[in-house]
Design a protein around this nucleic acid. Structure first.
Lengths: 356, 356
DNA sequence: CTGAAAGCGCTTACAG
DNA sequence: CTGAAAGCGCTTACAG
């Protein structure tokens, strides 16, 4: 067969050319000690001469490590998940890992199970799951976990390592900003309430109002889309006492701005509007949007850091001396929880109330 | 070792439980004919009883197929690339493939080479490269290609299979729309001119103006970002004869809208603005943006279709009878080129010129 | 410091 | 229809 003539070189070819056994080639490739420098040089020359590249599949078969990390994400066309994914991919690759991704069609238990099954078939060494819904985080924690898992924007209470942005703090930052400007209270357009991010932002908002003795208005709920923001904006436009609104993401804030504009409500003169996420567009909204910036890439990087730690621990159980091997650990440390702090970006969509 | 007690079952375990040899288990798993139904049933029962899952690494070692497709993308935080990636991932997974992704930090030859090297180490069966810059498409075509490659938004002239949206046609649609509304001519804010998408949109725009005998204004060039659009918008705001502008993507269009608004130029009363991409936000811009919609997911799906075709061909060389084996094909068919058509979405940002 | 042997968990001819 | 054998290309003890 013509195809066999140019078959790519294998370790044995390198060994032959270097005049050594293939084990020695393997030693050189794996940076083992105990290889004579001259031998090493000959092997390296042979590798380069042949353009040899180790077969990672054969390697994986014996080491039982594929050097692949799996990522489960949802709606990667949104700025947040896309940026997080980018941070994850970059950090994983820098650490020498491949990254295999599956996007959930829907945020359901079945889709999650299917995704884990898919990645399991590929024998990934570890998993990052972007699990923004509490139900998903719970479902995940109940599934068998043959490999280390780190969750992103997940529920810190389900017992899995997690990296997230302090959403509650973000809600506090926004609400304090608006109250300080002199607003009597702040309305809120939230994300779907089964999303942990939505929940955290609501909490921060509500707590801040309560602490200030400000009335807590009814929450309007959207689905993160500009359209849902638009609908909420139409309802808000009719409220007599409205002077400030905190919208749970920038896309919905855009919809709110549009609805207010159509209702001839001026921002920020009549009403202040603040968003969340700091998408690249928000600086150019009409008017430029005050919002909360989250470092999504940092979140992705931290998730990989945690995962690599977990993988390292797997290989060095690091038992305290004296502990009987195989015995139960005396105190299991809680799973790590990394929190990334958001910060407020003030632009023109927020200002003092008209009457102030 | 405690870890070995719960080692996952292998084919031999299934064989033992079913009372057959492991080859028979393999036959059942691979849907080979010539397995007695009762034997098959016993094997299947054993597989399920044990929760056995085939070791894909061992399988890959002998079949020389990893069932993994590599994807090289650039700036996956943008709506277009992110949506394309989603379409690719979904189609690949539906076809039973894993997808391994690498995001280019920069659109350079070196980064591309590194990405291909990375994916090559993983022994992917095929590659999809989102290659929006002509230089990248050329560089790619000059690199060794050990596996089938399909490019997306690449250069159809470099001899690689390609799937792209008819950008030229998009430029025509926009320009005709504006001329038909009565504008004397149309200005253009383009993307970086080494991007194929930018080039196609410019071409369509220019050809349409020329065909209509309309003057062809100088092209303003942005970098796809809202900020660059804003800067171009500031320049445009000072032009006396400006009544219509075609902006090469929605993000830059947002910047243009902002700059015009600040200059008290009203859209569409004073100037019509049209974008490109139809991002989810554009319907809620101030005013809602007339734009061109591209089906990115469809592009992703088509890319996988082409790649799967190429993979299938690899395995069935399908020589015309009579041709000497190994002989050169008499007429090499040109690489496939799939074109997806965009369409115009008319919203409120475009209208007749004031004087008309 | 280096090589001969065994084995990772499969699939693919080859017998029967 | 089914099994014994060989082999995919590596790494890991084990000798020496």
């Amino acid at each position: 067969m013509a195809r066999n003539i140019h078959r790519s070189p294998v370790m044995a070819d390198v060994a032959r050319l270097a005049g050594v056994s293939h084990q020695t080639v393997s030693r050189v490739l794996n940076d083992h000690p105990n290889v004579r420098p001259e031998t090493r040089d000959r092997v390296i020359a042979a590798i380069e001469g042949l353009g040899y590249r180790r077969n990672s599949t054969a390697r994986a078969l014996v080491t039982k490590q594929t050097n692949t990390l799996g990522v489960v994400a949802f709606d990667t066309t949104l700025y947040g998940p896309a940026s997080t994914l980018y941070g994850i991919e970059r950090a994983a690759r820098d650490a020498g890992y491949f990254v295999s991704i599956v996007s959930l069609r829907e945020l359901t238990r079945d889709d999650l199970a299917e995704a884990l099954d898919h990645l399991g078939r590929q024998q990934v060494d570890g998993l990052v799951v972007i699990a923004p819904q509490s139900a998903v985080a719970v479902a995940l924690s109940q599934m068998p976990q043959p490999v280390p898992v780190v969750t992103v924007e997940g529920d810190a209470d389900v017992g899995l390592p997690v990296v997230n942005v302090d959403q509650r703090r973000g809600g506090v930052l926004v609400t304090e900003h608006l109250l300080r400007l002199g607003h009597r209270t702040v309305w809120h357009v939230s994300g779907p309430q089964d999303w942990l991010e939505a929940e955290g932002r609501i909490e921060g908002w509500r707590e801040t109002l309560l602490a200030a003795g400000a009335p807590v208005p009814e929450v309007l709920t959207g689905d993160w889309s500009p359209r849902s923001g638009y609908r909420c904006g139409q309802r808000l436009a009719g409220m007599a006492d409205l002077t400030a609104v905190f919208v749970a993401n920038d896309q919905m804030a855009l919809g709110v701005l549009r609805a207010l504009d159509e209702a001839r409500v001026r921002v920020p003169d009549d009403v202040s509007v603040v968003g969340f996420d700091d998408i690249p567009e928000s600086e150019f909204f009409a008017p430029p949007l005050t919002t909360v910036s989250q470092d999504f890439s940092e979140v992705g990087r931290k998730a990989i850091e945690l995962l690599l730690d977990a993988l390292a621990e797997e290989h060095e159980p690091a038992r305290p001396p004296g502990e009987p091997p195989g015995g139960p650990a005396e105190d299991t440390p809680p799973p790590p929880h990394v929190v990334v702090q958001p910060h407020l970006v003030v632009r023109r969509s927020s200002g003092p109330p008209r009457a102030a």
